[in-house]
């Protein structure tokens, strides 16, 4: 049997730690994502899932640990056309009108050289990306005239246009209605079929659930679960299941999706 070179993993993070303004937020994060995997990063508000994605994309510097993307140490990594990023945001609008096509076109920057016009391949990739998210008829419209879900899809098309191999999406389904979530699921399904690696931050998976290969659950800045996808109660239910009725002494802050009912009162 011929010996083939082992393809490096898209993401390899060992002992990752992140501190924001000196305050430790993430610690002991070990995460390896293999090519073609669809990973859902889950957890309550403030559990550090968005921070982890920001650390993996370099938007947040690591306070400790080693990160490599596609086998290259992060500091030396400059092959950004292999990476796509959909930030968490409510609106794609800015102070000056911009059309959907222009927003998506900025996703091709990783393939373009300075002072060069768009090539035919660039234009085709932009049109394709807009088509995949179902905004074909809106391509020439200003983004500020689109609904929130459509703006979110425009941002996804922007990341798609660069034809990346590794995709980061930060809460793409937040505040998006069901038809738009279905459209998003279909777009991500096509992406997955092409062999892309996807890391998605989500509160609730909804229509994305069948696509997910692996769930990573965070709690208080640590990884507490890494394995096959879970149902809702496993993620958001209490960490320790007590047999005895247990009353918290400290007032607790619950996230909107966390159930405040006591485990004994029939959570599961």
């Amino acid at each position: 049997m011929p010996v083939t070179a082992i393809e490096p993993h898209p993401i390899e993070l060992t002992n990752g730690a992140v501190a924001i303004e000196g305050r430790p937020v993430l610690r002991d994060i070990n995460l390896t994502v293999c090519t073609g995997e669809f990973v859902a990063l889950m957890g309550a508000n403030g559990s550090g899932k968005s921070t982890l994605v920001r650390a993996l994309t370099g938007l947040r510097p690591l306070a400790g640990g080693e990160l490599s993307l596609f086998g290259t140490a992060f500091d030396d990594f400059d092959d950004w056309q292999r990476v796509g990023f959909v930030p968490q945001r409510a609106s794609a609008a800015s102070g000056v009108p911009a059309s959907v096509w222009e927003i998506v076109a900025s996703g091709r920057l990783t393939h373009r050289r300075l002072f060069r016009p768009l090539s035919r391949a660039d234009r085709a990739a932009i049109d394709d990306a807009i088509e995949i998210v179902g905004l074909g008829e809106k391509a020439r419209d200003g983004v500020s005239t689109l609904s929130g879900g459509q703006q979110q899809r425009a941002l996804i098309a922007r990341a798609l246009a660069g034809a990346p191999e590794l995709f980061f999406l930060d809460e793409p389904t937040a505040g998006v209605d069901l038809p738009n979530q279905l459209a998003l699921a279909e777009a991500l399904g096509r992406l997955k079929a092409r062999g892309a690696t996807i890391v998605l931050v989500a509160h609730e998976l909804g229509p994305l659930e069948p696509l997910v290969d692996r769930a990573v659950v965070m709690r208080d800045g640590r990884l507490v679960y890494d394995g096959p996808p879970l149902n809702h109660a496993d993620v958001h239910g209490p960490h320790h299941v007590h047999d005895e009725r247990h009353v918290d002494h400290a007032p607790r802050v619950a996230s909107p999706l966390e159930s405040i009912t006591h485990p004994k009162d029939g959570m599961r």
Binding site: T57, G58, F85, A92, S106, L109, A159
Partner: peptide, 18 residues
Amino acid sequence: PQLFAVAQDQEFAKVSGL
């Protein structure tokens, strides 16, 4: 193209290697 992308969305521009 670069100035537009940076002004539009700094984080995205950064992850694009700009």
